[in-house]
Simulated scan of single mutants.
Amino acid sequence: MIKLASTFNPVLLSGTSLAYTGSFAQSLFWESVDQLWYVCQRRPTTGGDMDRILISRLTADGVLVDSMTIGRAGHGANIGVERTDGKIFLWTDAMPFENWARSVARIPYTPGGTADASDPATVAIHHPRTDVYRVSATIDPIRRHLIYRWQSNNSSAPGAVGGFDRYALDAAAQGTFTRLESVAYSATNQSLQGYASLGEHLYQLHGSFDADNMRLTCTHWTTGKILQSEPLSTFGSLPRREPEGLCVFESSPGDAHPTLAFGVANELTDGTTRLNVARLPHPGTNPWVDVPYDTAVYTPNSANYVPQFRLAGDQVHLHFSMSRNDGNPWANGEALFQLPLRARPNRTQRLLGVVGGGGVDADTMAVRFEVTTDGHVLVYDERPLTSWIGADVSFWRC
Rank of each mutant, 00 (worst) to 15 (best):
M50H: 11
F89Y: 15
D49H: 02
S32T: 13
S56M: 04
W91C: 02
L13Y: 10
L90Y: 06
V39H: 09
D93Q: 01
A60K: 15
H75R: 13
F24I: 06
D51A: 05
P96S: 11
S14H: 11
A60T: 05
F97R: 10
L58W: 04
R72A: 06
G74A: 11
N78A: 15
D49T: 11
Y20K: 08
G86A: 01
T16C: 14
M95P: 01
Q26I: 04
L54M: 13
R72L: 08
T21I: 00
G76I: 03
I70R: 07
L18S: 11
G86D: 05
M95D: 11
G80W: 00
E82F: 05
V81M: 02
R52Y: 01
V63W: 09
F89L: 11
P96T: 09
T16S: 06
W30F: 10
S23Q: 13
T21V: 04
E31T: 03
Q41H: 12
A77T: 02
W91Q: 01
S32A: 15
A73L: 06
D85N: 15
H75F: 12
F24M: 14
L58Y: 03
G15V: 09
T16R: 12
G22D: 13
G74H: 08
R52G: 15
I55N: 04
M68V: 03
D34I: 04
V33I: 14
G80V: 03
P10K: 07
V11L: 09
Y38G: 00
R42P: 00
A19K: 06
L28H: 12
